[in-house]
Each structure stands twice: as structure tokens, then as C-alpha cells.
Amino acid sequence: MRGHEAKQVFPEIQLIQVPVVRVKADLNTCRNAGSEVVAVLSRKGRCERASIDEVYLDLTDAAEKNSGVDPKNMQNCRKDADHHDKLLACGTVIVAELRTQVLKETDFTCSAGIAHNKETAWRGKAARMLWHQHWCLVVEHCKRDHGEEVQGCLLPKSHGSEKTFPGPRALKTIASVQHWLNDLCEELAECLGSDLDQNKRIAQTLTLHARAYRSSDSDSQKNFSSKSCPLMYGTAKMQEDALNLFQTGLHEYLG
């Protein structure tokens, strides 16, 4: 729902204008705010940043060792609760403390899902989000022997820049695609430059994604394949490579 539509349904709604750069929402404020939250969360366990506002947190050790919350001595657990059930219970206590600490130090609220593996925890978090529209999401992982392990990674594993063109704003010429790819590559180059300066990191692969449909067949389910190539630093080179990737993808898409 767009702002003017929301205003019709809820006249009292307070709308704010987010910062805009290159006719796109500027997410740098959110990105930096996310780093503040991650800094607090990472005190309790291995932390893997999953997106701009999501992290996986492995609290296994904290749940096992947290002083005063020893799962072996929990008196209120059911008799058939096994060790892993008790770890989850300890996890809820730790997450509650973390959420309080995040709120106290950053003013942000978090939603959490707690489970023995990342996927289930993520689903739990998603269910909670239906009822609690919090800004930042925390997912906890209490056991390492089910599913993928939480990777210790406080920095993002990739950088991206995207733009949607809904309805009549859909692009239909190579020139318009090139214009937007140039903008997106500029933004991506800025992120890469910051990462290089601040963290001494470089990216090695450039990937282009596009959503497309044929004007004569708007119900087509055919996907525009993602295309990748080695990433060469330099905005102009990235812009050139992105356009080449697009044209390769378009060629395949059109068969």
C-alpha cells in the first residue's frame, strides 16, 4: 500500500519521508543502526549478520554456561524435558535480557525466534513478526548438530543495490536499463569502497539479477537468469560489465 492510499484508509497515520539518494531509499541509516544492534547482540554468542536487519545468533555456549541459568538445575521444567529443551528455555532468558539491553542502549526493539537450527528459528521469528512489527530481528540458534552452523560474521557477506519498476514504470529500452544500472553500480561501488577502507575487504564476484516479462505475455513464468562475472573495481568497469551481463541474460530470456 502506498502512502496516499494509506492516508485514505487511516487519515490519522503519520507518514515520514525516508532519505533518498538516486531516486531510491537511502538505507545507510538502517545499515548503521543495524551495526549498533549487532554490537550488543554479539556480546552473548557467535553472531552472523544475515541481512540489513537480521542476524543469526548461536547462544549454545551462553545457554550452557550462563551463570544462574544452568539447564541441569531448572526446577520448573517438565520431567520429560531433555537437555536440548532446557537449552531452549535458557535461550529464552538470554534473549529476553539481550532484547532489554538492545532497547536500553540503542532504542531499537527486536523480535526473536528460538530454535535448534537456523531455519526453524527464522520461521519462529517470522511468525512473531505477524504480531510484533519490530524493526530489527534476532534469531537464536541453540544447538550445532542440526542444520547449518551459525558463522561468526559481524560484517555483511555481500553488498547489493536494487531498484523496482512496477507497473507503468517498467523499463523497456536498453538505454533506460543502462541508465539505472549505472546508478546501481555507483551505489554498489560506494559500498565496496567503504568496505575496503574500513574493513580491508574486497569482493570478487559481480552478479546481476533482473525481473522481466514479455509485453505480449505478462503472465509468463519464465525467469530472467542471474548472471555473474569476476568483479573488477572501478565504477565505469562495473557499469560496463553489468550491462554486458544484462544483455547476455536478456538474450537467453528472449530465446
Binding site: L155, P156, K157, S158, H159, G160, S161, E162, K163, T164, F165, P166, A170, L171, K172, V177, W180, L181, L184, C185, L188, C191, L192, D195, L196, N199, K200, R201, I202, A203, Q204, T205, L206, T207, L208, H209, A210, R211, A212, Y213, R214, S215, S216, L231, M238, A242, F246, L250, Y253, L254
Partner: peptide, 18 residues
């Protein structure tokens, strides 16, 4: 003809400079 309703570019396989 074709229509593009979304574009994204991303950079991955990020490593620290040795």
C-alpha cells in the same frame, strides 16, 4: 517486446585482503 520490473547488482565472495 520485453519489460524489466526489477534490477539488482550485487557483489559477493568478499574476502579480507591478505
Amino acid at each position: 517486446g520485453w519489460r524489466i520490473t526489477g534490477l539488482s547488482v550485487s557483489a559477493s565472495k568478499i574476502v579480507e585482503i591478505p
